[in-house]
Design a binder for these strands. Sequence first.
DNA 1: TGTACATCAGTGAACGCGCGTTCACTGATGTAC
DNA 2: TGTACATCAGTGAACGCGCGTTCACTGATGTAC
Lengths: 214, 214
Amino acid sequence: MNEKVVPTSKAEKIGRYHHGNLKETLLEAAQAELADQGIEKLSLRAIAKRAGVSHAAPAHHFGDVNGLLTALAARGFGMLMAAQKLRLDTARPDPVSQLVALGLGYIDFATANPAMFRLAFSSKRPNFDDPGLHEPAKLAYDMLGDGVSALRDQSPASDLAVMADVASMWAMVHGLGDLLASGRIKYLQALTAEECEAVLIEIIRRAMPSLEKS
Amino acid sequence: MNEKVVPTSKAEKIGRYHHGNLKETLLEAAQAELADQGIEKLSLRAIAKRAGVSHAAPAHHFGDVNGLLTALAARGFGMLMAAQKLRLDTARPDPVSQLVALGLGYIDFATANPAMFRLAFSSKRPNFDDPGLHEPAKLAYDMLGDGVSALRDQSPASDLAVMADVASMWAMVHGLGDLLASGRIKYLQALTAEECEAVLIEIIRRAMPSLEKS
DNA sequence: TGTACATCAGTGAACGCGCGTTCACTGATGTAC
DNA sequence: TGTACATCAGTGAACGCGCGTTCACTGATGTAC
C-alpha cells in the first residue's frame, strides 16, 4: 500500500499532502520530544509540530494522546530489549555472563533514554492494559526471567526462590538504571566508562543467587 | 506570633480571614492531592481548593508553584527518614540489622507514598538546587552512607569500595521501592506481609558486601 | 487602656496561554468497471 | 487504458477548559505612642 510513498529521508515529505509514513514519523518525533522536554512537558501539539504536521493529524493514527503515549511506551520496551540483545550478543555465553549482560543492557537503556525509561516504568499516562503495550512489557520481563532460569537450571529451586531471584536482579538493575538516569550517583558517573562498568558488573553480581560463579 | 491562631482541627478555620497556619495546611493538602491525583495531575489550584483557600494565597508562602513543590519534596525526604528511623528503632542494634532496617524503611516509604516517592526521586518539578530541598535529600543519603560505613568499620576498605557498597544498597532498595510502588512485582505483593518482608530482607542482604553476616 | 497605623495574609476577578478534541473540508489514493 | 467513485489521511479553524500569575483590594494583626 505504501511502498511507493515511504520516505527515505525527512526532506522527502515537502509538499506532500499525504505523508505516507506518518505513524512512524510521529513516534520518532514523540521520542525526540520526550528526550528534549521530559515527560512532564510532553504534548501532542509539540509532537505534531516536530513531525511537521497539523496537530489534528495524530488522531487518525492513534485516536487520542493516550494512544500515542501508549504506542511510545511500547516502543520504549522494544528499545530496552534491543539494548539488552546488543549486550547479550557480545557477552560470553555462560549463564552468569548472559545475566550480567541483560542487566547492563537494562542500564544502558535507562541512561541513554532517561525520559523514555520513565515513561515505560513510572508514568501513568500510557495505558498498560492495552495489549500493544502489555505484550512488549511482558516480553521484556520474560527476558530477565529466562536469564535467571538459565542460571537456576544448575540447581533447581522452588517457584518462590526463582521469583525472589528475578525480583532481586530486576530491582538491582532497575535501581541502578533509575538512579543513574536521574543523575543521583554522581561519583559513579565521574569514573571512566571502563571503571564504571566494572563497578556495575560487581554490583549486579551481588543480586544473583549464591551459586558457583563461572 | 501564631500560638493563639494555630487551629487544632480543620473545622476551626471557618470564617477566619487569616488562616494562621496556612503554610503547613497547604503542604498537607498538597500531599493529599499528590496521593490522590498523582504527580502528573497535581496543580496549584487543586491544592489551594483542598486547603479551602483562594488559589492566589499560596504565593504568599511559596512564591510560585515550583516553590510549593520544592517544599513538598523536602517534606518527602523527611517522611523517608522518619520511616527509616521507625525501622531502626525496632531493629536489632548490630550493623547488618540496622542496614536492613534502613532498607526496609526506604521501601516502607515508597510503598506507602508512591507519588511522593516519585516527586522526591523522579520528578524535575521540584528545584533540587534549593538548599531547603538539597539539605534533607543529602541527610537522607547520608543515613544510608553511615549505615554502610558502620558495617565496613569491621574491615576497612578503599573509598571506591565504600561508594560501591553504598550504590549497591541504595540501588537495591530503590529498585525494590520503585517496582513495588508502581505495582510491577505482583507476586511479591500477593504474599502475606510476613512472607513478603522475609523475601525483601533476603534480597536486601544480597546487596551488602560479602562480610561475615552477624 | 485606647488609638493610629504599618504590615501581613488573605480575596476574587481578570489575564493570557497551551492544551486536547471536534468538525467540516480537501487532496490523494486505490479500485471497480 | 480511462473514468467514476469510495475511502483514506491530511488541513486549519474553532471550541472550551484548566492552568499559573498578576493585581487592586481588604480584613486582621501587632506595635508605637
